[in-house]
C-alpha cells in the first residue's frame, strides 16, 4: 500500500515536471480529460439517446441550432435529417471514437511490446519472422492497409478495431526490440545471467521496465492517430455501421447538406474531432520533447 502511494507520488511529480511552464500542453491535457469525461458519462448527460429511434421525430429534422423541438426541449446544436439532436449525437460519437481508439491502441501496444521483447530475447528465426512482418507493415501506409482489411472483412466496430490494431503494433514492436536490444548490451543483464536468474524473470523484471519508456512516449501519438484513422474510414463509409455513428460518420452524414447551407450537422462533430486530436497531440509533443535529451538541454535557454 505504501509502495502504491509512493509510486503515485512520483507519478504526480513527473506529470508536474513535464507540464509546468507549458500552458498549451496543460490546456491540451485538461481538454483531453474533459472529452474523456463527456464520453464516459454521455448516456447520463446527453439530452437524448440518439440510438433510440423511438425518441426521434422526423418532424424535428434539419433544425438549426437553438431550435425548439417538438417535445419542448431546446436543441442547442440543431438536428440532423432524422431529427437527431446533434449535441447528443456528438457526445455518443465521441464515446464511440474514443472507445475504438483506446482499445486499438492498448491492444496494439501490448502486442507490439510483447513481440518486440520476444524478438530481442529469442533472436534467431523468431526475431527474423517478427521483424520481417514489421518491415512489411511499415512499408505499407496504414490507411491503405485498413482499407484493404475492411474490404476483405466488411465493416463494423470490431472490424475497424482489428484494422487499427494492425496499424499500431508494428512500430511499437520495432521500438521495443531496439530499446530492449540496447538494454541487453548493458552489464546488469550479464549480472543477472551469471546469477542464474531465469530468462522469463530477466525479461519481466529487468528488460521490460527498462526498455518500455520510449514506447510509452509514443502511445498518445498512436491514440490520436487511431482517432483520425477511424474518423477517416468512417467518413469514407467503410468504418463503423450507420446505426452507431462515430464522429467521422456524423461528418459524412452532414456532408451532403453542407452545400444547401445546413452547416451545423457536419461542423460540430468536426470541431470536436479536431479539438480532441489537437489536445492529444500537444500533450504528446510535450511528452516527447520532455524525453528527448537534445531538446531538453535547449529548453533551458
Amino acid at each position: 500500500m505504501i509502495d502504491y502511494k509512493k509510486k503515485l507520488a512520483t507519478l504526480s511529480l513527473q506529470t508536474k515536471s513535464i507540464f509546468s511552464g507549458h500552458p498549451i500542453a496543460i490546456a491540451g491535457l485538461i481538454g483531453f480529460v474533459i472529452f474523456v469525461l463527456i464520453a464516459l458519462f454521455a448516456p447520463w448527460i446527453a439530452p437524448q439517446n440518439p440510438y433510440d429511434l423511438m425518441v426521434l421525430d422526423i418532424m424535428d429534422g434539419l433544425l438549426p441550432p437553438l431550435s425548439k423541438l417538438g417535445n419542448g426541449t431546446t436543441s442547442w446544436l440543431g438536428t440532423d435529417a432524422v431529427g437527431r439532436d446533434i449535441l447528443s449525437a456528438v457526445m455518443y460519437g465521441l464515446r464511440l471514437s474514443l472507445f475504438v481508439a483506446f482499445v486499438a491502441t492498448t491492444v496494439g501496444f501490448l502486442i507490439g511490446v510483447f513481440l518486440g521483447l520476444l524478438a530481442a530475447v529469442k533472436g534467431g528465426w523468431v526475431e527474423s519472422v517478427i521483424m520481417r512482418a514489421v518491415d512489411l507493415k511499415v512499408s505499407f501506409p496504414g490507411i491503405l492497409l485498413a482499407l484493404m482489411m475492411l474490404a476483405i472483412f466488411g465493416t463494423g466496430v470490431d472490424k475497424i478495431i482489428y484494422a487499427l490494431i494492425i496499424g499500431v503494433w508494428a512500430s511499437k514492436a520495432r521500438l521495443t526490440r531496439s530499446s530492449a536490444l540496447s538494454e541487453m548490451q548493458k552489464e546488469y543483464i550479464d549480472a543477472a545471467r551469471i546469477s542464474a536468474i531465469p530468462n522469463w524473470r530477466i525479461m519481466l523484471k529487468f528488460l521490460l521496465p527498462n526498455s518500455i519508456a520510449p514506447v510509452l512516449v509514443m502511445v498518445p501519438m498512436s491514440l490520436s492517430g487511431c482517432i483520425g484513422a477511424e474518423a477517416t474510414l468512417s467518413f469514407l463509409g467503410v468504418g463503423v455501421p450507420i446505426t452507431e455513428p462515430s464522429l467521422g460518420l456524423l461528418i459524412a452524414n452532414g456532408n451532403d447538406y453542407l452545400l444547401s447551407g445546413k452547416w451545423w450537422i457536419s461542423l460540430f462533430p468536426g470541431v470536436v474531432l479536431v479539438s480532441l486530436v489537437l489536445c492529444i497531440n500537444v500533450v504528446a509533443d510535450r511528452i516527447r520533447e520532455h524525453n528527448n535529451p537534445f531538446l531538453k538541454s535547449m529548453n533551458m535557454q
Partner: peptide, 30 residues
C-alpha cells in the same frame, strides 16, 4: 553462483529500476 563478476561500467551494471539493496539480494531471493 560461486563465480561472480565486477563489471566495467558503473552506469549500466545495476538495474536502474531496483533499489541498491534489491540489486544486491535479488538473485539470492530468487
Amino acid at each position: 553462483l560461486s563465480m561472480q563478476c565486477i563489471f566495467q561500467d558503473p552506469y549500466s551494471s545495476l538495474n536502474p529500476r531496483m533499489s541498491a539493496g534489491e540489486n544486491i539480494t535479488y538473485g539470492l531471493k530468487i
